[in-house]
Simulated scan of single mutants.
Amino acid sequence: MPYSESQKKATMKYMEKAYDRLELQLKKGMKEVYRAQAAAHGMSLNAYIISLLEADAEKKSD
Rank of each mutant, 00 (worst) to 15 (best):
G42D: 02
L53M: 12
E54I: 04
L24Q: 00
L52H: 04
R35Q: 12
M30E: 12
R35M: 09
A10W: 03
K13L: 04
M43F: 07
Y14G: 05
Q37K: 11
K28W: 00
Y48M: 07
I49V: 15
A57G: 00
A40T: 11
P2A: 07
K28A: 12
M15P: 02
S4L: 08
K8D: 06
K31C: 00
M1E: 09
T11C: 13
L52R: 11
A39G: 02
K59E: 11
R21F: 01
S6M: 13
P2N: 08
L52Q: 10
D62A: 15
R35A: 13
E54W: 03
S44P: 00
M1G: 08
M1L: 04
Q37Y: 09
A40Y: 07
D20R: 13
N46K: 12
M30F: 10
K9C: 02
Q25V: 10
D20P: 05
D56W: 10
M1R: 10
Y48N: 02
Y19S: 08
A38V: 02
K9Q: 13
K59D: 08
M12R: 12
Y48S: 01
Y34F: 15
I50Y: 06
L26R: 03
V33R: 12
I49G: 04
A10Y: 07
Y48I: 05
K31G: 07
A36N: 10
A40K: 13
I50W: 04
E16R: 14
K27F: 01
Y19F: 15
D20A: 11
S61A: 15
S4V: 01
A10M: 07
T11A: 15
M1T: 07
A18L: 03
A39F: 02
K60T: 10
L26T: 02
D62T: 10
K13A: 13
A57D: 05
L22A: 10
V33Q: 12
S61M: 06
P2M: 04
Q25P: 01
T11H: 14
L45K: 04
A55P: 00
H41L: 08
A39H: 05
V33P: 03
I50L: 13
E32G: 05
K31P: 01
E54Q: 13
K9V: 07
A10C: 03
D62M: 12
A38D: 03
P2D: 09
L45R: 04
A10K: 07
I49M: 02
Q25E: 14
N46T: 13
K8S: 15
G42R: 05
L24I: 06
A57L: 08
V33E: 14
A38H: 03
Y19C: 09
Y34P: 05
S44N: 02
